[in-house]
Design a protein around this nucleic acid. Structure first.
Length: 624
DNA sequence: TACTAAATAT
DNA sequence: GATATTTAGT
């Protein structure tokens, strides 16, 4: 595995502890272990060091209780950004804390005083991590390693939770493909067992192709290609050319295209369900989701179970980020305009009202999308139950972050990463900072979503089933419970892959009871350090937020852009519709019709767009 | 050769 | 059951 001969001698360890004494002791111990030790007494500094010196550290060992940043927070960020093994250190070793550490992704949890014996073996985490990451990129030909990683991952189940673990396991099974071949092939194998065996060993090319996982990024490219070519002219080969992804084959694309088309087909066939809210494309939804978590009860991707309803449509979107900067709403909408979607539709688009549907409401998802557009909706920000929030800034292009907070309660699990791209982060949004109509206005389109989260009006998640009922069907009992969301935090628990499936029911259960966990994002129980930093850096007036902390990945991808508008965040407000039902109904007479209309336009709109943005635009349409 | 639908596999 | 690969027909 490419480990130096002298490993772990010289292993680069970053030790973080606000207590100088402890830090010093720790440093000494680590040095005794012959590690290359770097120390800092501030978590923020540690993070900074890690960011600036990527690949300069092999492992992080951090105290839990630190004034500037909670150790768990640090852990989380490191996990997300660096994928480095992190060992938590604390004077308290109670089960709860340890569990919290583990859930946050700590690969180990040591209690003070730390013994050198414990430190002598911490290098194993580095090795393990390397194996795991290697495994991720693995192909079938590297089956042995996969298998190994699988085992390791298994051991670290608690640490990696579903995500990586399942990945590893999947790879493992890939390696095991000795498998049953189809009937014909089966017969053949029975007759020519040895021969086949030999062939496998001698001609790896005969082996089955490693299973390709269409992660968000890949799918995004796929969609971009389709958008570029136009759905009618999007053939595998051309898509392949456009995507320009190494290792990707035409067959892969053909297969994916097949699925994609099926999805579209379904959308068309079930306009009320799927088309209405958007396309059936899970990945797209994912993209749109980006930035916020979708509370999804369904195993794995929301899309899987609920193709179109998914998050995208139901949740407001956070504006996310990096790629979007400079891309204003109008850009996103323009394609739609050009399609002459009637005003009603546009209105719909304009308002991304997050509505919560009762679990029983399976028929009309959209009911209650209050709309107002283009200045028709005055910035009634904080005035009354319905604050006006700009939302829908845009569907962001890349999945940036999620807040594990929600799942965190009750030890729910969230996948740590989605194919390495999806991340979890926190987005405490201060309601007051939410409204951002002016900015949107500049874009000619006021994407405002009415929400009644503003001011002191708490959003009541209780009685109303919150998250897409359609989603919910069999599995997801996603109900938000009472909780005062003074700060509208967009929380969407981004679930992904089947890997999550196993746990997700339990998670759902938990979620149903803890939707109000927004506040509990922080391990400390306060609104989280992030929240504080938001408060400090994000003046309401500026409507900008320093996301360096909030969304590390953003910082990562575009370091120059520390700030970006938060307009979307605000927009993501979950709203209980039941209480507003009447209002909504009055607002729309036939939302379904509108949605159908939009859906029809959707396809056309796609063609008009170019690049990723368009893609997003597509999304916008679909999410309505 | 390339596309797609259907069959298989995981 | 969903998703990906492989096969087979065009």
């Amino acid at each position: 595995m490419g480990v130096e001969d002298r490993f772990p001698v010289g292993m680069r360890v970053l030790a973080v502890d606000d207590d100088e004494t402890c830090l010093s002791v720790l440093e000494n111990l680590l040095r005794k272990c012959q590690y290359n030790v770097t120390t800092t007494n501030q978590a923020i500094k540690a993070l900074d060091m890690l960011r600036k010196n990527r690949n300069k550290f092999d492992l992080v060992i951090s105290d839990v209780n630190m004034p500037d940043m909670d150790g768990f927070k640090l852990l989380e960020l490191v996990e997300l950004e660096m994928d480095l093994p992190v060992i938590m250190l604390s004077g308290y070793g109670d089960k709860e804390r340890v569990m919290r550490g583990v859930i946050h992704g700590a690969c180990d949890y040591l209690t003070k005083p730390v013994r050198i014996e414990e430190l002598q073996n911490i290098w194993q985490h580095v090795v393990r991590r390397r194996i795991d990451s290697k495994d991720k990129n693995k192909t079938a030909s590297e089956g042995k390693a996969c298998s190994m990683a699988g085992k390791l991952a298994n051991e670290e189940k608690a640490c990696y939770m579903a995500g990586e673990c399942s990945q590893a396991m999947a790879s493992k099974s890939n390696a095991d493909q000795n498998i049953k071949l189809g009937q014909k092939r089966k017969e053949q194998s029975e007759d020519e067992e040895e021969e086949e065996y030999d062939q496998e060993n001698e001609e790896p090319s005969n082996q089955k192709k490693p299973r390709l996982v269409w992660d968000a990024e890949l799918h995004r490219k796929f969609l971009a290609a389709i958008n570029h070519l136009g759905i009618d002219k999007a053939f595998p080969k051309r898509i392949l050319d456009l995507m320009n992804v190494e290792g990707l084959t035409r067959e892969n694309i053909a297969s994916h295209l097949q699925k994609y088309r099926l999805g579209l087909k379904k959308s068309t066939q079930q306009p009320s369900m799927v088309a209405t809210l958007g396309n059936s494309d899970p990945y797209q939804q994912m993209d749109s989701i980006e930035g916020f978590r979708t509370l999804s009860g369904s195993g794995g991707m929301i899309s899987t179970t609920l193709p179109s309803y998914a998050s995208g449509g139901l949740f407001c979107r956070l504006n996310s980020p990096s790629g979007l900067r400079g891309i204003n709403s109008s850009l996103l909408v323009q394609p739609v305009h050009s399609q002459n979607i009637d005003s009603r539709s546009i209105k719909t688009l304009g308002n991304m009202q997050l509505s919560m549907f009762s679990a029983n409401q399976t028929s009309s998802l959209l009911q209650g999308i209050p709309t107002s557009i283009d200045g028709n909706s005055p910035p009634t920000h904080n005035s009354g139950a319905f604050g006006n929030h700009s939302s829908l800034g845009a569907a962001s292009v890349k999945t940036q972050s999620f807040d594990p907070g929600i799942c965190e309660l009750g030890y729910n699990r969230c996948n740590k990463s989605w194919q390495g791209t999806t991340q979890i982060s926190k987005f405490p949004a201060n309601t007051s900072a939410v409204s951002n109509n002016d900015q949107l206005a500049q874009n000619n389109l006021n994407f405002s979503s009415s929400t009644f989260c503003s001011g002191n009006s708490p959003v009541d998640f209780s009685s109303t089933s919150v998250v897409a009922p359609p989603l919910e069907d069999a599995r997801g009992k996603l109900r938000c419970q009472e909780g005062l969301l003074e700060n509208i935090l967009l929380t969407s628990c981004y679930t992904q892959h089947q890997s999550w499936e196993a746990d997700n029911r339990g998670c759902n259960k938990e979620m149903s009871q803890t939707f109000n966990t927004i506040k509990s994002v922080s391990p400390n129980g306060d609104t989280s350090s992030l929240g504080h930093s938001l408060d400090q850096n994000n003046t309401v007036s500026s409507k900008r937020i320093d996301v360096s902390l909030v969304n590390p990945s953003v910082t990562q991808s575009s370091e120059d852009e520390k700030f970006y508008s938060m307009e979307s965040i605000d927009g993501c407000i979950l709203q209980s519709m039941e209480s507003q039902e009447d209002l909504m109904q009055n607002t729309f007479e036939s939302l379904d019709d509108i949605m159908s209309e939009i859906t029809k336009q959707e396809q056309n709109a796609i063609m008009l767009m170019d690049g990723e943005m368009e893609f997003d635009a597509y999304h916008v349409g679909s999410c309505i």
